[in-house]
Each structure stands twice: as C-alpha cells, then as structure tokens.
C-alpha cells in the first residue's frame, strides 16, 4: 500500500477509480472486474494478483452483482469498512444515475411509433442474448458429464417454465442439494 497517501487520499482514490471504471465499462461483470484488476493490481499495486483471483472467485460465489461484490471485497482489503462503502458507492452511482435519466426518456419516447418499432426489434435481440447465455453456460455443464447436474437442470426448467414455481424455491432447492452433496459423495466413497 502507498504510504505517502493519507487515509482520506486512499478513500478518495478508491471512490474516483470505481466511479470511473463503472461509468465507462460496457458489458458484463467480468469486463468491469478486469478493469478493476488492471487499476488496483497492475497500476497501483495495492492488491497482489493471487488475492485478486481469490476475491473474484468469492465475489462470484455470493449473491448479488459480481462487480459490486468485487468492489466490496477490494474496498475492505484496501481501507476497511469505509473503504468498502466508498468502493461500492462508486461502483453503483454511475449505473443508477444513467438509468434514472434514461427511464424518463423511455416514458417520453416509447409512445413514439418509430422508437416502439426499434425497441420491438431489440426484444428479438434480447431473446437471442438470453439463449446464447444458456448455450454458453450449458456447454460447460455438458463437459462435466454429471448426471445429477442434468437432473437439476431438467427439474428446474420444468418447475419454472411449465409449473410456474417461485424462482426462490428452485434456487433454495438446488443450494440445499449442493450443501448435502459432499456428504453423500463421501459416504459412497466409504462404501466402495
């Protein structure tokens, strides 16, 4: 950590860096996290490479948005509780501001027939992006060749799309299964 900076200076630097990265990074969480790594590992050397990888893995495993979670962990590591707070705020403020402004434009413009037509075309694009994500994420599952994973996938799909089960119950069910899975595997290894 840079000794020449005061505590306030560090907090300010974290806030401004996050604000800047979040405002100008388009694309998913991984893109934002890559820029965070560049800033705090490569440029400022406040975090070492291995720690950064651990933080990314942890951020992915927790609920919520990955970029926010990574900002949270980085903030704690660099400057404790207040570091976490300014880091998360810096990451959240740009999207919230931009969407607030855009949502007023949406009200004004979505009644316009040409804007509505363009939006309608984009809806087809949104459907394609969703199914593309499914195939990319699903492709990795196929490589795993786990029967249990396929059962979870099939059951979850039927529950959500055919039976309209509340999504939260599906997530809880899968999480519970994941929690008892190691015990079950251990027992099977013991019997073999």
């Amino acid at each position: 950590m840079d000794e020449t900076l005061s505590r306030k200076g560090i907090l300010g630097k974290i806030f401004v860096s996050m604000l800047y990265i979040s405002a100008f990074t388009f694309g998913g969480g991984f893109v934002i996290v890559t820029f965070m790594r560049k800033k705090f590992v490569d440029e400022l050397h406040w975090i070492d490479e291995e720690e950064m990888l651990d933080m990314i893995a942890l951020a992915q495993s927790c609920p919520g948005a990955m970029a926010i979670n990574t900002a949270n962990l980085l903030g704690w590591r660099m400057a404790g509780f207040w570091g976490m707070l300014v880091s998360v705020l810096g990451t959240a403020i740009p999207p919230v501001t931009i969407i607030t402004i855009l949502s007023f434009f949406y009200d004004a413009f979505s009644a316009n027939p040409w804007v509505a037509l363009a939006l309608k075309g984009m809806q087809a694009g949104v459907a394609a992006v969703f199914l593309d994500v499914v195939f990319s994420m699903g492709g990795n599952l196929v490589k795993g060749k786990s029967l249990l994973n396929w059962c979870i996938l099939g059951a979850a799909f039927l529950a959500t799309f055919v039976f309209g089960v509340n999504v939260i119950y599906i997530i809880l069910g899968a999480a519970l299964l994941g929690a008892v899975r190691p015990l079950w595997q251990k027992r099977r290894e013991g019997a073999a």
């Binding site: 969703f130 499914v134 994973n149 979850a156 999480a175 299964l177 929690a179 899975r181």
Partner: peptide, 15 residues
C-alpha cells in the same frame, strides 16, 4: 459445492 449445484438450476432459469 453449493455453487456447482446451483449452476444448472441457474441455466434452466435463464432458459
């Protein structure tokens, strides 16, 4: 382990 069981469910939900 929890995460590895969640992933197929998440794929199904996104689908």
């Amino acid at each position: 382990s929890i995460l590895s069981s969640l992933r197929p469910a998440v794929v199904a939900l996104i689908a």
